[in-house]
Nucleic acid binder design. Structure first.
Lengths: 229, 229, 229, 229
DNA sequence: GATGAATGAGGATTCATTCAT
DNA sequence: AATGAATGAATCCTCATTCAT
């Protein structure tokens, strides 16, 4: 995984298979499983024929699952990094570790605008499509997150941790998943550097609060100075 | 739990038009715009033929927009209640007002399990479907929420308020929108009374923190006692 | 049949039945039997419901045949006039009689722009629709025309008369039936008074020639003076 | 009658695309644009599925326009031949040239019984279908015809030439376009050799008269002798 | 490895028609 | 006399998928 920001646009894809996955990621993120057509995906890759896709993937569902798997897999290192940082954290550095984790996730989501939408859709698409795949892929991330949360030792009682974990997920991923709605409703492009920086500030503070790291959210002045990237 | 406006399930619908909207709400929430078929919707209503739907709605798109509009409109009173409560809040009662608002929203989402999924999908479905309708419907809720946030006078600087507002939205709605994913990943049904109560506890604390109302989230013991509904 | 130029537009139709026939005439002429829908016809009449048509006509085919019958019937008097004039013609006045007939037909077609298209379509629509009706309606006109031709005693041998008759029909009706094509191809509106007058001049000369009445078509100068109506 | 370009009927079509065009020509001519169904066309070609048609044509309209274009294009050589003949005509041979042209057109229409109906329908189908295509296709033929007429130097003043041209068109094509009506009304099959020969005789005389070539239509005896083919 | 061709299934939409009111 | 409601059939069109090349 040498280049972190890769293959998103129409760059010379390493392999056709990879190019198909790229196009599929975009289409599935944009329109969902049912709304994305193999014809469109093939066309976007430059393939003249949908049949070509079947050389690389058994059928639409397999392509979907491969797309999802690839996308989720790129998140795994981030989680691992977080786990390691927390594990090796001496007293007090937990805050720094979690902030670093948040930043790495935000960087990733900013550079891969399809990821959040793809995962959010996968989570909503009723078990009709990809019945077992989605849980199988996402569960590791969930348990890892839970584990981090547990070891970080926040103010939450154990039975609340699942809710905290999913809450953090929605807080962070929601902004990116709903970017197109936010654009219309906020009347501002969420991917603008300014907007994005503000979101980062907000999330830093919010996450810190939820994790019981920040004593109080009274950070406005400081944040203002910090939110340039 | 005696809600006056029920008719969500397979109760004897007042009118056919309303029954169609009910079925459409379920299908669109479950499968999204592209994945829902008029045939299925008609069948669920008991109509023998998709053609009947066209007696009540011009198009699939028109049906979708009507469904969405009806769903969103049922949220408006909640927002208005919140606005009024905050407006009339004497010093210190803002916390109670916002807690009441949160509770009313949670009650609504629990009783209408399609609402969150429907709105979340509408926000993600790229402008291909319902280009202008979604913003038009949701913007009032957004500005109202922003207004409440502003008057509540939390610790956030003004330019952060949009991010706080949408953050709260994702925090609250995300749990319900992704219920099916959570079910698989948490290995617990999010709509179980116990799970739901825990989520309520979590959200109360989280929202209070984010609004700067609660000094610290160290509320486990108290919450445990309060979260039975 | 008091008013010759009647009920074409949205004038206060005598009866609903008549109004339906008016709308049907327009639609069937514009789009043909298959292309015209009862919904459109009902809407054009102002009826809110296609079902209302069924109070007046058994089904679409019956409406079509009634429309056709009414349209053709309005032509019958013209033919009769021609027959009478020819029958009572003293030597040499045959030319005047046939010219008068042509003029009356042209007046009628100018004022009823649907007639020619309706009949032309009926003649082309393969026996699928209105199998026996069309011949039954049009045959009288044909035989009458043949009779006139015969008695007029032109230069054609008897076995050619059917071809002359139909040739005249196409010559005269074709211009009106294909008006929309001519408009595009000639780049001039065939219903313009000027264009129409020229067509009249042309037809007068052409018909006279074909009937052997005019010794030669060298009529330009005279025609120019005559073609104002 | 050994025409090199046949393949009109159910002969083994060169390519599927061509076979589809053949079937479409027949259906569109028989029933018009609205009345012809892709299902029927596919079935007539032997395709088991309407979907196959979409492999060759974008949609029904595109198929229609391709059909029309192909049909009209087969007429172009005839027109060119006429133009050349007239252009190279020494004094007096204009009559022969125009007679030859008429004969070639009649031969073509006899062998391709759909052509006249297809074009006539295209001219009538209100601009709803094939708005610009029909004029674009037919205008060249019109202007070419006009040109020939002009150079032929008949007795008509210039402003009458468009009317003469379209009149000739209707005179010639009308017989074939309305063949099914004529069959019912004349009670004789217009495509019978005898009928067809008589029509040829009629048209020869009529065209000659209209072009001012024949001094008088008193040709019965000669025609009788000539009309066996 | 890629493509052209074909196809069955399904999806939205329109249409003629019927029935009860 | 007119309409609302419902429906079966058909229409255009898209989609996923397969097969031969």
């Amino acid at each position: 995984m040498p280049p972190p920001a890769a293959a998103q646009a129409s760059a010379p894809a390493q392999s056709v298979r990879e190019a198909i996955l790229d196009a599929a990621e975009r289409r599935f993120a944009d329109r969902g499983y049912a709304g994305a057509s193999l014809r469109d995906i093939a066309a976007e890759v430059g393939l003249k024929n949908q049949a070509s896709i079947y050389h690389y993937f058994k059928n639409k569902k397999a392509l979907y699952e491969a797309t999802l798997a690839r996308t989720v897999q790129t998140l795994v290192p981030l989680w691992q990094g977080a786990g390691d940082a927390i594990a090796g954290a001496v007293d007090g550095s937990g805050a720094a570790a979690s902030a670093a984790f948040l930043d790495s996730v935000l960087d990733h989501l900013e550079q891969h605008p399809d990821v959040a939408r793809l995962i959010e859709r996968a989570g909503m698409d009723d078990d009709r499509y990809a019945r077992t795949t989605v849980p199988r892929l996402l569960r590791p991330l969930y348990t890892a997150g839970l584990d981090v949360l547990d070891r970080a030792g926040g103010p939450w009682p154990p039975e609340q941790l699942p809710h905290v974990a999913t809450g953090l997920y929605h807080l962070i991923f929601g902004y990116f998943a709903n970017a197109s709605l936010l654009r219309a409703v906020m009347q501002d492009d969420p991917y603008t550097p300014e907007m994005f920086a503000r979101q980062r500030v907000f999330l830093r503070a919010a996450v810190a609060q939820l994790l019981g790291i920040a004593p109080a959210p009274a950070r406005p002045a400081v944040q203002k100075g910090r939110n340039r990237r």
